[in-house]
Design a binder for these strands. Structure first.
Lengths: 215, 215
DNA sequence: ATAGTAACTATGCGAGTGCTTAGTTTTCTT
DNA sequence: AAGAAAACTAAGCACTCGCATAGTTACTAT
């Protein structure tokens, strides 16, 4: 349920699209579905327009090019992922709790938003160079958050590893790869996956996973 | 080193293409490069023909359709990956040694053949349904090898985990995701990555990674 | 009611798509 | 040397692509 200008929202993907109007939003959602299903090059602007219930040319009143659609989706997606990660950290104080929340929410984000994540993670190459650079800067910030968190846990003595960079790489890879294969309705859920991967990552870091859940 | 029809070859990607003739081989290699760089839908048959040094129609003397190219590449790639995994296991006897070799070689394969791996792992959706089904059967065999290996290590008491399925998922995901970001010339190599991920996975399994390397 | 604006549709251009057909050159066999 | 087979090229068909232009409808503000 979306209401605008006096706004009430309940869906999980809300305010992803920022200040975009309802027409623009329908197009972005149609483009997202199409890009996720068939890839950027495999989805035509006619597909997208039809899925949005419009004529092909109506798309261009809202978005200058097809690449602009991908750019808007990529930007919104990366911002959403980064926000999810930062929100996870904001609620925890211990090294174990923070990292567990980080891995859990990053993983769960990729499952819950598997369509968005797929586009965001696998269609980077279809972006114009300057747009790609901007997206890559956002991604690098997410990577730094993960690495910093692991480093902090090592500094405090909570984690023990000879390869913090490898663990960070693994955290990011495990999360991203979820969007490759995840499908709702299977025997995984965003939360179950988040929990399992968080436990595995804590094991990589030499913590006993039966210890501290919060506090 | 592979010998074929009196021919001696040393390159790492040899006999990937089976009994294909030299013309067909050039096309497959051009298609592989193009698919890896721009995706299946982003690569045109003219691109591929030009990269193979042929006219567009010459391609069709060797391969019936563009989708057939993808199918041949996918089949060769999955067979190669499965063979790499089985070869890794053939040389080790202990649970730790076997799993270390498995993770190492699966990861290194995705780095060393990052173009092939990318096509194989991310362009499945562009295959015709029956071709996709066949490829998925091959993939499932690889998944089973990983899961069986972990289960065997648990049964023998070498590994300790409450979530063998999660570890198997992680092993496969870590390996596959390498092909998304890996580029030669960076500060990773197939071997360095293989070693790091093998260590991380053994940590997930509750083994002290400073123990048994071989034997 | 009227004017202005935002949101749309119909139509289609020029380029590029996968693939075919017909014909030419090269290579192999004998 | 002659014939068959394999490997190619030139040209183009039928279609789809991203996107533009011109015109229509729906809505809003006064």
């Amino acid at each position: 349920m979306i209401r605008k200008n006096g706004r009430v929202t309940t869906s999980a993907t809300d305010d992803l699209w920022g200040e975009a109007g309802p027409g623009s939003r329908r197009i972005l959602e149609a483009a997202l579905t199409a890009f996720a299903a068939r890839g950027y090059h495999g989805a035509s602007t006619r597909d997208i327009a039809a899925a949005a219930g419009m004529s092909p040319s109506a798309v261009y009143a809202h978005h200058r090019t097809k690449e602009d659609l991908l750019y808007a989706i990529s930007l919104a997606g990366h911002r959403s992922a980064l926000a999810a990660v930062e929100r996870a950290l904001a609620e925890e104080v211990t090294a174990v709790g923070r990292l567990r929340a980080l891995v859990h929410d990053y993983t769960a984000w990729h499952a819950r938003h598997h369509q968005l994540a797929r586009v965001v993670q696998y269609e980077l190459g279809a972006l114009a160079p300057d747009h790609r650079d901007e997206i890559l800067r956002l991604r690098r910030r997410t990577e730094e958050v993960v690495l910093d968190e692991i480093a902090a846990g090592i500094a405090s003595g909570a984690f023990r590893t000879e390869d913090p960079g490898g663990v960070a790489l693994a955290v990011l890879s495990l999360g991203v790869d979820v969007s490759r294969w995840y499908a709702p309705g299977g025997h995984h859920t965003p939360v179950s996956l988040g929990r399992r991967y968080a436990t595995l990552v804590l094991a990589m870091l030499g913590t006993d996973h039966r210890s501290a859940t919060a506090g």
